[in-house]
Design a protein around this nucleic acid. Structure first.
Lengths: 214, 214
DNA sequence: ATTACTAAGATTCGAGTAC
DNA sequence: TGTACTCGAATCTTAGTAA
């Protein structure tokens, strides 16, 4: 964790010329113009990159080494994370729940753990949202992230399964998607818990559109 | 077209801390450790960035200006182009499947959707390929692209999960990688579906090398 | 503890120019 | 053409230390 996140501008210019996939034929003068730096400097820096085993200069042009490609991969993966993980935003419509959430969230076995792991006692009821078809792929990505696990328990009557939680926000309210391991509604519906009664707090009713941000 | 493609490592470190979306509370010493540079240098460079109107230091932390965010957007867009415009090609070795694919692809619930979303009824069986270690990063890129979702369903016995599909080609045959949400084999193995029986059509057998193009 | 100044050392840069 | 050397200038970096 450190400088592998930085990226040499010369390397980036080569990338822009397609060097990730094939050797690139380009002169130091051209590179200098692109980067607004002298031909001499490009020449020098290229030879440094070569010594560092980042590029090879061959008859067919300048090519990136595996080491350089690895660095670029890391940079791109990091940026992707910054841009697309944070921007995950599910849109959908509020639907009425079946009272299931209310039932589960009335039980101390779950409530205590929510307090512990999310920092608040949940309002005893969930907001149910039917996700737009177009955002379903985002939901799948979210479900692949590391969940906060609320472990199940038994009482004298029956046993209760684990719940998976994923932190999110609606407006500026901290919430979490809760997914029972054995869910009873279709994959397009998600259940949200929060400290407050979301529908009332947001002034929304069934059928209204809503956005959930991760 | 030039240096807007480069990126200051300090800016990138701030981004990594989430500065794109909110002010970040972090000390110059911490940043110095992250970047393997002295606290003094971070301090100095931060003040340069401030003079250049790239960051603001407020009571709630360091925040990026619009100018800085615009630059980052450009960098990301450029990288995205580099990575996702060019053809990705996975190389690997054919391995024998566990018959799972055959099982899934015998079910109408999935078959109908494949016909609908990919334009053909799939041969009831998958080609399993163990991707070369060197191409794993490409696989990761592919899995981050927008999938075609084959939604799960229930029958009287059990429920079947969603599948993610990504169109690709082997030679001139249209295929798709299929990824179950909860996959049963290691991340190096992918399953390919197609209209035809791929192994027979390509005259290949287990252990042969093969390329998949996106 | 945190930030940032100064002074000195390290490095990067571009002009001139050789090849 | 194109590349790359020297060398002085500009810039960057760090240690020491003040605030």
């Amino acid at each position: 964790m450190g400088d592998e996140f930085s990226m040499d501008e010369l390397l980036l210019a080569l990338l822009k010329q397609g060097a990730y996939f094939k050797p690139v034929k380009i002169t130091t003068t051209e590179l200098g113009k692109m980067l607004e730096m002298s031909q001499q400097n490009v020449s020098h820096r290229l030879s440094v990159l070569e010594k560092e085993d980042m590029v090879n200069r061959t008859a067919s042009g300048i090519e990136l080494t595996k080491k350089a490609k690895d660095r670029v991969d890391v940079l791109y993966a990091d940026m992707k994370l910054i841009f697309e993980k944070e921007k995950l935003e599910l849109s959908g419509v509020i639907v009425s729940g079946l009272g299931e959430g209310k039932y589960y969230l009335s039980m101390d076995g779950y409530r205590k753990q929510v307090k512990e792991k999310f920092g608040y006692l949940p309002f005893p009821g969930t907001l149910n949202i039917e996700i737009d078809e177009n955002d379903m792929w985002k939901k799948q990505h979210i479900l692949k992230m590391e969940p906060i696990i609320i472990t199940g328990f038994k009482d004298k009557n029956r046993s209760y399964g684990d719940l998976f939680g994923y932190k999110c926000r609606i407006g500026d309210i901290d919430c979490a998607i809760i997914v029972p391991l054995r869910t009873h509604h279709g994959p397009r519906i998600i259940e949200i818990i929060s400290r407050v009664e979301l529908k009332k707090r947001l002034g929304k009713k069934d059928g209204d559109r809503i956005k959930v941000v991760f």
